[in-house]
């Protein structure tokens, strides 16, 4: 596995449901950005959303 591939494997092992059991966790650490558009670059636009199911988008977009 290359580093990119192994990073993706690790990312896939995160679950938004288990993350929710920790009080401080949020699905997107980019302030002002929709939780459904966290991998968007540039200025945060709350009206822009990249995905419809948080379980799908959160798996690949956090941090």
């Amino acid at each position: 596995l290359g580093s990119e591939a192994s990073r993706r494997v690790l990312a896939q092992q995160r679950y938004i449901s288990y993350d929710a059991l920790r009080a401080n966790n949020v699905p997107c650490s980019k302030r002002g950005q929709s939780y459904y558009n966290c991998n968007h670059r540039g200025r945060a636009n709350p009206y822009q959303r990249g995905c419809s199911y948080i379980t799908h988008c959160a798996r690949y977009t956090r941090r």
């Binding site: 401080n24 949020v26 302030r31 002002g32 950005q33 945060a44 636009n45 709350p46 009206y47």
Partner: peptide
């Protein structure tokens, strides 16, 4: 979204 010429407050994010 209803009038793109007008800026409005679209989000509040005070996490943490």
């Amino acid at each position: 979204p209803s009038d793109p010429t007008m800026r409005v407050v679209a989000g509040i994010d005070l996490n943490h």
